[in-house]
């Protein structure tokens, strides 16, 4: 019995059970919600969020109040860079990928340098960077017409690729496997947990804490850049601040996946389920017939309710 209870209390299990419950609820509220087509569409949306959350996840795992508020800005920037570089031509996809990754890594590097060399708290550093990125978006948008997605990229995101499943979902699965391998099987991954649970001990044990942390921010920037690229493929053209929605929802996905904001504990598999959970919840709210105010109230209240299922802080003890 205890074994069953502790199994049921694992974040991943909670998330999967909640996903099943929500799918059932969605299907009974509007028949067809849980059909294969709809689930695939939800998975596409979830994969965009999930890819951003992968970067957020490693930063949060790395501890020291790690958080990246600039991901939304990087997603928008990457979408607009990709649109301009490829401009509707398949030949431009590869240069676009490289340009986006470079931009993501660059802003991640700046974040990382501020957090490590100047010891600016991540929240402050990435908040400031978000302002810079939003300003940059205005500059680019006024100077250059926003480009279009290449047909190849749109097909990759929205059309079935293998076994009737779009490429972006395969990409997400690949990222999931990569993250699981990196976090569990590589020295780098183990060091993330080490600096996240006790930075000083990790430093004493010879972990290059600063370089690690800079690396984590670069990874986060690059994941956000990939998501921005895919988002362009999903929507066809980039529009104002498309990435803003990902800033806090990526953090919520990580929390719903059972990763503690204190760092050092958690993993990416849960985060994937968390992202899916969030997207399904939003999907249900858009299908039921209530106005925007009711939708937001229910969404906020449900988020709070779901958070109660996950790690609550410890009570104070003398």
């Amino acid at each position: 019995m205890n074994a069953v209870l502790s199994f049921l209390k694992r974040p991943l299990v909670i998330a999967l059970l909640l996903i099943a419950a929500l799918l059932y609820l969605g299907e009974s509220l509007s028949p067809g919600f849980a059909s294969a087509d709809q689930v695939l569409r939800l998975l596409i949306v979830a994969s965009l969020l999930g890819i951003v959350a992968a970067g957020q996840n490693v930063i949060i795992l790395g501890g020291r109040e790690g958080i990246d508020l600039s991901v939304g800005g990087v997603v928008s920037l990457s979408a607009i860079i990709a649109g301009n570089v490829m401009n509707g031509a398949d030949g431009g996809i590869l240069p676009a990928i490289l340009a986006c990754l470079a931009a993501g890594a660059f802003f991640g590097l700046l974040n990382g340098l501020g957090v490590t060399l100047l010891r600016i708290p991540p929240l402050v550093m990435t908040l400031g960077m978000l302002g810079v990125l939003q300003g940059l978006l205005v500059v680019i948008r006024n100077g250059i017409p926003s480009g279009r997605a290449a047909p190849g990229l749109s097909a990759f995101v929205t059309q079935p690729l293998v076994f009737g499943i779009p490429g972006i979902i395969w990409l997400w699965i690949a990222i999931g496997l990569f993250m699981a391998f990196m976090l569990n099987r590589t020295v780098f991954g183990h060091r993330i947990y080490a600096i996240g649970s006790n930075e000083h001990a990790a430093y004493m044990a010879g972990v290059p804490v600063r370089r690690m942390r800079i690396g984590l921010f670069m990874i986060s920037g690059m994941f956000a850049a990939i998501a921005g690229l895919c988002l362009l493929g999903y929507s066809g053209s980039s529009f104002a601040n498309v990435g803003e929605q990902y800033m806090l929802s990526s953090i919520i996905a990580v929390v719903f996946g059972g990763t503690s904001l204190a760092g050092g504990k958690g993993g990416y598999t849960g985060t994937m389920a968390g992202a899916l959970l969030l997207v399904i919840l939003q999907g249900i709210l858009t299908t039921v017939n209530i106005d925007e105010s009711g939708r937001q109230m229910v969404f906020g209240a449900t988020l709070l309710l779901l958070m109660l299922f996950y790690g609550r802080g410890k009570a104070m003890r003398a």
Binding site: L248, I251, I252, V255, L261, E292, S293, G294, R295, Q296, M297, V298, F299, G300, A301, L303, L304, M307
Partner: peptide, 12 residues
């Protein structure tokens, strides 16, 4: 995350 959730609720 909790105050972000309440912010959605208050906006609603």
């Amino acid at each position: 995350v909790a105050t972000f959730a309440t912010s959605i609720f208050f906006t609603g």
